[in-house]
Amino acid sequence: MASSVRRSDPRATLNPTALVNEAWLKLGNSPRIASTSPLHFKRIAARAMRQVLIEAARHRNANKRGAGAVFVTFDDRLDRRPSYAKELLDLDRALDELAQIHPRQAMMVESRFFGGLDTPEIAQLLEVSEATILRDWRAAKAWLAHKLRQAR
C-alpha cells in the first residue's frame, strides 16, 4: 500500500460520499434549519439532495457534450453505458410537470426518492393515510417511468 490516501476504508460504515457532503454544505446555508422538526428537516434534506444531484447531472451532461474542454477522461467509461446524468435531468423535468398537475404526488416522490423518507413519515408530512401514499407512489412512479422512457 503505497498511496497517501486510500480509496475507501473497509471498516467505515458511514461511507462518506461527496454527495452527502454537498447536501450538508447546502443545508448549512439555510439559517432556519436548526429550528425545524426532524421530519421537516428530512423534507428539506430531500430537496437539497435533489438540487445537488441535478446540478451534478447538469454539469456532467454539459461536459459530455464537450462544453468543458479542459477535462478529458482517463477511460471511456462515459460512453459505455446509458447516462445517469441525462436520466436524472429527465426525471427532474418530469417531476416539475407532475408538480403542475398533482403537487402532493411530486412532493411525495421527492421525499421518498431523494430524501429516503419512509411511507409513515411521508404520510405524516403530507397529512394523508399511508394507503393513499402507497397508491400515489404506484401511479406516480409508473407515470414518471413512462415519461423517462419517452425521453430516451
Binding site: 461527496a18 451534478a56 456532467r60 482517463f74 462515459l78 446524468a85
Partner: peptide, 8 residues
C-alpha cells in the same frame, strides 16, 4: 452519477 465522470 458521480462515477460517470470520475477522476478528471
Amino acid at each position: 452519477l458521480l462515477d460517470e465522470a470520475c477522476l478528471p
